[in-house]
């Protein structure tokens, strides 16, 4: 069976998807998406088990969107936006922060390991930091492996 090694996380998995994790990233258009784009332009190595959803602002994200991603089979969800104080819309991420913090605290009650969800802030100029954040997050999810027998 054809194997692929993810150079950044060091894990080996088959190409047909067995043993691979699905990780969804929800990134704000103005900071984190640009940061991830910058990381690509700079040819920084990034893990490939990662699917990005671009949103106008983290304030647009409903905690239910994240739960929906989990329900549809995601093994981890990473949310990233502008640093507090740097929001393109001035205050969107302050509202987001409260909702995301509550979600993060509620997830263990639903049977999720803490490593499966993270929210963080990465600016457009922080390509290096983006590489570090996404690599660490996916390493954490890969350690847990795909979710099975789940309530949600």
């Amino acid at each position: 069976m054809a194997q692929a090694t993810d150079i950044t996380t060091g894990t080996t998995a088959s190409w047909d998807g067995e043993g691979r994790v699905k990780v969804v990233g929800i990134l704000c258009n103005w900071c984190s998406y640009a940061g991830a784009d910058g990381a690509g332009t700079a040819r920084l190595r990034q893990p490939f088990d990662f699917r990005i959803v671009r949103v106008p602002c983290t304030g647009r994200i409903d905690p239910l969107h994240i739960l929906k991603a989990f329900e549809k089979g995601a093994d981890g969800v990473l949310v990233s936006g502008c640093h507090p104080g740097d929001c393109h819309y001035a205050e969107g991420n302050y509202y987001a922060r409260r909702k995301l913090e509550l979600l993060e605290r509620m997830l263990p009650q639903l049977g999720f390991e803490a490593e499966r969800f993270k929210y963080t802030w990465v600016s457009a100029s922080e390509a290096q930091r983006w590489q570090q954040v996404v690599t660490e997050f996916i390493k954490g999810v890969e350690k847990l492996g795909p979710r099975e027998g789940r309530a949600l």
Partner: peptide
């Protein structure tokens, strides 16, 4: 309930 391991909570919720 909070003190249970994640797998157990997951099972009970389901």
């Amino acid at each position: 309930f909070e003190a249970l391991p994640e797998k157990e909570k997951d099972r009970l919720m389901a």
